[in-house]
Design a protein around this nucleic acid. Sequence first.
DNA 1: ACCAAGACGTATACATTGTAGGCCTCACCG
DNA 2: CGGTGAGGCCTACAATGTATACGTCTTGGT
Lengths: 110, 110
Amino acid sequence: MGSSSAIGEFEQLVVLAVLQLGREAYGVAIRTVIEERTDRPVSRGAVYTTLDRLESKGLLSSSVSPTTSPGTGQARRYYQVEPEGIEALHEARAALRQMWTGLEPLLGEL
Amino acid sequence: MGSSSAIGEFEQLVVLAVLQLGREAYGVAIRTVIEERTDRPVSRGAVYTTLDRLESKGLLSSSVSPTTSPGTGQARRYYQVEPEGIEALHEARAALRQMWTGLEPLLGEL
DNA sequence: ACCAAGACGTATACATTGTAGGCCTCACCG
DNA sequence: CGGTGAGGCCTACAATGTATACGTCTTGGT
């Protein structure tokens, strides 16, 4: 899409959720965080599909949990944010920030 | 997409550009603002297509210039941001802000 | 008057993302 | 050993992102 490593709207949310969760970042938890923080419904499929794409783009990496803690069903796949992921977030944010600059009087504080 | 009026990444940039330009918001100018502020190339087609979609979603409205100032070729189509557009911007921003909250130590200041 | 050139907009097409739903596996419990 | 809950994967389709090509004015030569 963009020049280097572009990232979409929902993709950003997913990467941020992974950061928020630290070592507890797996599908279901990621979904929950996004739903709670953005207060909008997110389907399971949406999350997994996006995680897949982000991984194949190199923004995230994953590994299946070796441990099977009690109460946990199928083995979890944990995600981690790669440096490219961090960079993509910064780029997206910089672009938005630039575009917002000067509009505070019209739209409220940054 | 989202609950009410969702908006994509590039769409946000376009709406913001229209706000930045005020009454001088027409295709070519919008493209220029985005390229300058985000420092990334944008094709003409990308802008017009997006403007079209935003208008049909009701986030923007437009009207062809009655005046034909000298040096201007074909009549310009000027855009304006509708209340729904402003709202969509705020929603998108709120979501991102929520997701970023708490990550400053990891990623730098907001 | 004619035509090339520049400023703009429109049409079309295709790639990437967004999003939902269904289906499958595993572990635990009655 | 069948049900149930936690989790993950696959498929399909809609929406967005993005580029190229093409049409329309208007002006400036000549």
